[in-house]
Design a protein around this nucleic acid. Sequence first.
DNA 1: GACATTTATTCCTATATGGGAATATAATCG
DNA 2: CGATTATATTCCCATATAGGAATAAATGTC
Lengths: 127, 127
Amino acid sequence: MARAATTADVFNAIAEPRRRAIVDALRDGRGHAVAEVVARLRLRQPSVSKHLGVLRKVGLVSVSRSGRQRLYRLNAEELKPVHDWVRTYTPLWNRQLERIKERAERKTHERVTDQRERPEPKEGSSW
Amino acid sequence: MARAATTADVFNAIAEPRRRAIVDALRDGRGHAVAEVVARLRLRQPSVSKHLGVLRKVGLVSVSRSGRQRLYRLNAEELKPVHDWVRTYTPLWNRQLERIKERAERKTHERVTDQRERPEPKEGSSW
DNA sequence: GACATTTATTCCTATATGGGAATATAATCG
DNA sequence: CGATTATATTCCCATATAGGAATAAATGTC
């Protein structure tokens, strides 16, 4: 078989950089007209319409009519599967830091305890 | 132009479910022979080799020879771009919780048992 | 109704895909 | 060496893309 459709799931939908840019442009959660996105990203209107169509099919955006324009609104929670998947790998590249920190802690144990750094300054927590 | 190559970046590479499954299979960070992955995921060997080739091209895995087998090891930190991008959206689906908390704060005198907001605006109709 | 505006859709095309099957390459063993 | 094991590569093909250009809805305005 050929490659999976871009509309197959969110992972395929966001593989395209311009679609991520569109998602970024809708970040504020409010409705945005197509022309707005076109102006912001400097893409052609049909291109934006097509990309929005893909995003809509996977549920990442929803549309509402307002006069002759259509307002696209981000459905951010549809990105959760991506986050949930990739999130499980963060310990693998944080382990480095953890080890360094650990060693630093052990060393500091000999001296005065200086706790000004939180153990997890990075995210790691999703919800 | 056509769709970007799967080897264009990590986003495209992980769009394919089997490739994510392979990444999952290599999660422990140790080297794994191709046959191991083949056995685990029940895919054909050429298929696995090809997928591993894609993952290698984007840097998600690295190879080392050991006798007649090749050990593939996960390079989890290459997933960081994905995490960094999607991570910025987590507040948007946490807003639910925030709202609930907010309401609870504002209306402490009322009983808060109302958390049945469940938007599911999936799938439009027109194509 | 004629016209303008906003967005969606159609047609085209070069390109890459992923699977299957077969085969090539590589390393090890007897 | 020949045989076996482990993996990579090649060939074939149906399918889907993304952009461009042109055009088709759909709606609002006069």
